[in-house]
């Protein structure tokens, strides 16, 4: 049960009438982590997520949940928040949440107990008897979020979880997602917004044009995409610095900002940051020094545009 990966998909392909939605995609989702499925619109993310949820069956490939072949009995261990949110508009909030929870296999009493707990946490106890259509969009989203996580599944799948929330509520949802991970859940979330990826994800898989073009831990990916560039903010003489740096590094860019000079340096292979710092120290006062690690955003753009060439 406690293997490293809670979920694995191997060589998944899916075709729809003439177009390939997924082509030989494999992912392994580590237990207890937040796993991001990234990709531009139309890359195949939603198809992959629907396959994980057993809404669609793949044409080829194998799926494993806790090392067992994925089957309908795993449904109760998975919670899914689709990108297209929707609830029964005429149903009352409380009944709606209970209904969805019971469909996931909870008993009525269990479902009631847990619903009350969550309603308390989100301060929406008085919504119980309201109809869904009487709620604002944001409130509906919260109801939907609760019904996704209520049955405390091992694996949670959020498709664009922050769309439709205002910044305050989005932050609350983000905190809830982090808390769920702390409590042991594994989370797959799909997005095309990179800001949230670095904050939340431990691992990612990047899907583009139906193919996985990159995956791994966020940390490792960013390290792998290091360009050995450094940024320094200093006050001093740049000419002296330039000569001091040769041949360890070249100055790619400099510009003055108020009383500071901002430098972008390209280190030669095998030159450590300490060596560069030493050279700088001789001629300048250093305010700030940092390696320029590419953001997920940069990597994303880089990989996706590469694919186009």
């Amino acid at each position: 049960m406690s293997s490293e990966y809670i979920f694995r998909a191997e060589y998944i392909s899916k075709q729809f009438a003439g177009h390939t939605a997924l082509n030989n995609v494999s992912i392994s989702v580590p237990r207890g982590k937040i796993f991001g499925i990234l990709g531009p619109n139309g890359a195949g993310k939603t198809t992959l997520i629907r396959i994980i949820n057993q809404i669609l069956a793949p044409d080829e490939g194998k799926l494993y949940f806790n090392d067992e072949p994925l089957s309908p009995r795993h449904i109760s261990s998975i919670g899914y928040l689709p990108e297209e949110r929707g609830l029964y508009k005429k149903m009352k909030v409380g009944e709606q949440v209970l209904y969805l929870a019971r469909l996931k296999g909870l008993s009525l009493t269990e479902a009631k107990e847990k619903t009350k707990k969550w309603f308390l946490r989100f301060e929406m106890q008085h919504w119980w008897n309201k109809k869904i259509e009487e709620l604002s969009k944001g409130m509906q989203q919260k109801v939907q979020f609760i019904s996704t996580v209520l049955h405390e599944p091992e694996l949670l799948i959020f498709d664009e979880p922050f769309s439709g929330f205002d910044p305050v509520n989005a932050e609350q949802i983000k905190q809830e997602i982090i808390r769920l991970r702390t409590e042991g859940a594994t989370i797959i979330f799909s997005t095309h917004r990179m800001e949230s990826v670095e904050e939340l994800c431990d691992h990612i898989a990047l899907i583009h044009k139906s193919q996985k073009i990159l995956d791994g831990s966020v940390h490792n990916i960013r390290r792998a995409y290091r360009t050995q560039q450094y940024e320094a903010r200093i006050s001093g003489n740049t000419d002296l610095i330039r000569t001091a740096l040769t041949p360890k590094a070249t100055l790619l860019h400099e510009h003055a900002e108020q009383d500071e000079i901002i430098l972008t340096l390209q280190a030669q292979d095998g030159v450590s940051s300490n060596e560069i710092l030493q050279s700088l120290l001789q001629h300048a006062e250093i305010h700030y020094f940092s390696e320029k690690i590419p953001s997920m955003h940069d990597i994303f753009i880089q990989k996706v545009t590469q694919g186009k060439e």
């Binding site: 449904i75 689709p82 609830l87 029964y88 508009k89 469909l103 019904s147």
Partner: peptide, 17 residues
């Protein structure tokens, strides 16, 4: 049609066939 247009159906089919 109600289920389809209100988009509840994707949540539903992740729980029931």
């Amino acid at each position: 049609m109600e289920e389809k247009t209100s988009r509840i159906v994707e949540v539903m089919v992740s729980s029931v066939k």
